[in-house]
């Protein structure tokens, strides 16, 4: 593992004055030239777009028509570029019949609709007591631009998208990914498209706490409201333990009860913090989203009873 040869000996001894000067000059020139410009992957010699698309369909095990996939991966910026090039060349730019393809905007909308619908349904199914507002927030987080762009680039859409910049922006990545879902729906059935969403978008929740994604501003107020709706008494907070009260590292443990029935407890540096955290804990227990809750069975949602159609 240790480098056995000296740096100088690989390319010839640097003890020669002229060689030393030559190498130093080359080094300086390379620094001056700066970084290499970004290039399209398709500019390299080892590139066959049809083969890439064919491999892309096999990668996810989806049976998609190649033309349909090509359509799904064509961004509007690419189309605009083509039109611009045609006008510059003196061709009829507005004549859409000369362009044999369109961009993926509509397919992306279709895919987004499917994804949103499915995610909302799956979350409601697995967390039935979680409020609608929270489910909306989590769906919004899962379909947000950074999340989808991260998934899209992780699945290799970065090089496959046809657009006017070498490294596609996150909007382009998002559109292409959602259009791919739309293309699955178009070629196969809705079931396959929803399975794709479950496999690649819903799994983004692994290792994340959904209570942290939906940040509740006033947990005590929400707890009162929820208890009122269920016909229970208003919450009462009680101090259970306290240590180091006069020190810097003071700890209070506050429990929350409703009609002497235990709801949840938490520790905090001050009583107000501990009370707020205890309210959050009580809410977690009421919504059944606490740590003891089983994780979403990503591959078995249908088997466990989630229906395809309502």
């Amino acid at each position: 593992m240790v480098r056995l040869l000296r740096y100088g000996t690989i390319f010839g001894p640097l003890k020669d004055r002229w060689r030393y000067l030559y190498k130093t000059d080359l080094y300086k020139r390379r620094i001056e030239a700066g970084p290499e410009p970004e290039r399209f992957r398709s500019a390299l010699i080892n590139w066959n777009y049809d083969a890439e698309l064919h491999a892309c369909t096999h990668r996810f095990g989806e049976k998609i028509n190649i033309e349909s996939l090509r359509h799904a991966l064509t961004d509007s910026s690419f189309l605009n570029q083509i039109v611009k090039q045609r006008t510059e060349a003196g061709l009829a730019a507005n004549d859409q019949t000369t362009l044999s393809f369109t961009h993926n905007e509509e397919l992306a909308k279709r895919g987004e609709q499917i994804a949103e619908d499915f995610l909302r349904r799956a979350l409601q199914y697995w967390y039935p007591k979680f409020p609608q507002e929270g489910i909306d927030t989590i769906t919004k987080f899962l379909l947000s631009e950074p999340t989808i762009a991260d998934i899209s680039s992780g699945l290799g859409f970065k090089t496959l998208i046809r657009c006017d910049v070498p490294s596609p922006h996150s909007t382009m990545l998002k559109k292409a990914f959602l259009a791919f879902i739309g293309a699955i729906d178009e070629n196969n059935d809705r079931h396959r498209a929803e399975l794709f969403v479950a496999d690649f978008i819903l799994t983004h929740l692994v290792g994340k706490d959904i209570n942290e994604i939906w940040h509740i501003k006033n947990p005590m107020g929400l707890l009162t409201k929820v208890l009122e709706e269920n016909g229970r008494q208003a919450p009462e907070s009680r101090l259970i333990w306290a240590t180091g009260v006069s020190s810097v590292l003071s700890t209070y443990v506050v429990g929350i009860y409703s009609n002497k029935e235990y709801l949840g407890k938490s520790a905090g540096a001050t009583i107000s913090i501990a009370e707020e955290m205890a309210a959050r804990d009580a809410l977690r227990r009421l919504f059944e989203t606490d740590e003891q809750r089983a994780p979403i069975p990503f591959d078995k949602l249908y088997k466990k009873g989630l229906l395809i159609d309502k």
Partner: peptide, 19 residues
């Protein structure tokens, strides 16, 4: 693993192209 590969119903081979 990248993107929780394999947690869903399918495994995605991470090698895209070989020259």
């Amino acid at each position: 693993t990248r993107l929780q590969n394999g947690i869903g119903s399918r495994y995605v081979c991470q090698l895209q192209r070989l020259t």
